[in-house]
């Protein structure tokens, strides 16, 4: 485990929040009874910020991410993305918003195995009905360090390379918000650092907002702020913390 904390820009970018969660609750009902995954979460994610969400398993962090990204409907509360309230949108409007404004990176790389790297990256553009410009695709591939791999298929790449393809695919539409769920969960520490560096770069260079769910204190330390979630409620935060500080806070929560 590396102990060196990454450096941050001295001032956080200002402006209206990129993503706003207002009193989000989420209750799952099943035959066994109701489970409250989120019990009222309110938070503003500032534009250009890199926020990590941590918490013990079952604390609701994945549910939070899914509600924030409009993948799941909160039971009560509202989500506002760049001024657009997700609640009133139908499936198609939500999809169009998703492909214009959001990028996703998950633990499982979620690439289409039948498509080449190039086609995987260009897919979001094609879905919007645009013909992808070769230069744009090449540019993001260079950005994630995959120049020369455009013709490969995902199965021919290492885990870290596949995750970089996923990031390139998220970058190609220039989304304003990145949602990442355990993006380094399946990678070794060296590769993890490259991936987190890419996300960091997105906020620093392009002013994109990153919301990342993780259980890894080292990954969380790349964020400016770490939110802690416990039993469906926000339980506090740490700013510019070291992995050691984050790990200590986590064991407090779990203990």
């Amino acid at each position: 485990m590396t102990a060196t904390a990454p450096t941050y820009p001295s001032t956080a970018p200002a402006g209206p929040p990129a993503l706003l969660l207002d009193s989000i609750t989420k209750t799952y009902r099943s035959k066994a009874g109701a489970v409250d995954a989120l019990r009222g979460v309110t938070y503003h994610f500032a534009r250009g910020s890199f926020t990590a969400v941590m918490g013990p398993s079952g604390s609701g962090k994945s549910t939070l991410l899914q509600c924030a990204a409009g993948l799941d409907h909160p039971t009560t509360g509202t989500v506002v993305l760049n001024g657009v309230t997700l609640l009133g949108l139908n499936e198609v409007e939500l999809t169009k918003l998703r492909r214009a404004e959001m990028g996703f990176v998950f633990q499982a790389y979620n690439l289409l195995p039948s498509l080449t790297v190039y086609d995987n990256v260009a897919l979001p553009l094609r879905l919007t009905g645009r013909r992808p410009a070769r230069n744009d695709v090449q540019r993001v591939l260079e950005q994630v360090g995959l120049e020369g791999k455009a013709k490969r298929r995902p199965a021919e790449l290492s885990g870290g390379q596949q995750q970089r393809v996923a990031i390139a695919r998220a970058l190609i539409t220039r989304p304003s918000v990145f949602f990442a769920d355990e993006p380094t969960g399946a990678l070794d520490s060296g590769t993890s650092r490259q991936i987190l560096g890419l996300l960091r770069e997105a906020t620093d260079r392009a002013g994109q907002t990153v919301v990342m769910v993780t259980h890894d204190p080292v990954a969380a330390a790349y964020a400016e702020r770490v939110l802690f979630l416990s039993d469906g409620l926000l339980a506090g935060h740490l700013d510019r913390a070291t992995p050691a500080q984050i790990a200590a806070a986590m064991s407090d929560l779990e203990g």
Binding site: E91, R99, L112
Partner: peptide
């Protein structure tokens, strides 16, 4: 696979 396509912006249509 369909879920993934929906995730990266494919509409149900």
């Amino acid at each position: 696979e369909f879920g993934l396509l929906r995730l990266i912006g494919a509409t149900p249509r």
